[in-house]
């Protein structure tokens, strides 16, 4: 079955997220920090009268911090709570004709934690990641 995927850029890696999981793509305004929370929780942001919990994907996955400020985020709803996942760049929405398949090579441990296989789009392949796993953040490694 063909599916739509959102392609985003995190630390130079182009990865895919199932488009139906993503409510919208937003540019984040100001952030309200949440003191005392895990490092990957960047803070709170208001979106149309809702409070989004903003997650830094790089920190959550265990990648080095970004050098440049970023503002693009994808909004997902997990367990009834809205989250904004901050990425380096939102690229495109693509359609894949095939099913997600297990990754042909083993990604690095950080990526392996959040990946759910890969998808093929034309000539390219993308790592498919699970937003819920990103939100859990580094805590899942401790568990």
């Amino acid at each position: 079955m063909a599916g739509l995927y959102l392609i985003v850029d995190i630390d130079g890696e182009r990865i895919a997220v199932t488009a139906s999981d993503v409510e919208s793509v937003v540019e984040l305004d100001t952030l309200t920090p949440v003191p005392g929370s895990a490092p990957h929780i960047l803070g709170l942001s208001a979106l149309r009268s809702r409070v989004l919990s903003v997650i830094d994907c790089r920190t959550a996955i265990g990648l080095p911090p970004a050098k440049e400020p970023r503002r693009e985020a994808m909004v997902v709803n997990i367990g009834g709570h809205p989250y904004a996942l901050l990425v380096d760049r939102v690229e495109d929405v693509v359609e894949s004709a095939g099913e997600p398949a297990p990754a042909t090579t083993l990604p690095s441990p950080n990526w392996a934690e959040v990946s759910r296989g890969m998808i093929e789009v034309g000539e390219n392949i993308f790592l498919l990641v699970d937003p819920a796993a990103i939100i859990e953040g580094p805590s899942r490694r401790a568990a």
Binding site: S53, H81, P82
Partner: peptide, 19 residues
Amino acid sequence: IKPAAPPIMATGLYAGTTL
């Protein structure tokens, strides 16, 4: 008051969020 997301509640410092 809206309930805060689980990673925020996990801090044990907050009871919810509002605007």
